[in-house]
């Protein structure tokens, strides 16, 4: 029902302070306020989050699946870009 009156919104939830917002799904809503309400009611019923972002789906700019070869394949053989050649001291912990 993504009509002009009920546009689609993408929902991002931050589960804990310090973590990044993560995409969790989408919903239909008439305006930003009701999108935020609906996101709260749909996606945070079980303590999933402490912060919500809603973004009009129409505002997202996405890469074209047809450009996959050009966009992503060239990175696949650049193994030197992975930090696997370094010795990480134990004291550093999780990087």
């Amino acid at each position: 029902m993504a009509t002009p009156r009920f546009p689609l919104w993408e929902v991002f939830i931050r589960s804990r302070t310090g973590l990044a917002h993560r995409h969790v799904g989408s919903l239909h809503a008439v305006d930003a306020t009701s999108a935020l309400d609906a996101a709260r009611d749909l996606f945070t019923r079980r303590n999933e989050g402490v912060s919500i972002w809603v973004v009009p789906s129409a505002s997202l700019v996405a890469s074209d699946p047809g450009d996959k070869a050009m966009m992503f394949d060239p990175a696949s053989d650049k193994i030197y870009r992975h930090p696997t050649f370094y010795e990480v001291p134990d004291e550093v912990g999780h990087m």
Partner: peptide
């Protein structure tokens, strides 16, 4: 009238 509101009213 819509799924989102269905959940809201149930909540």
């Amino acid at each position: 009238p819509m799924l989102e509101e269905d959940m809201a009213l149930a909540n």
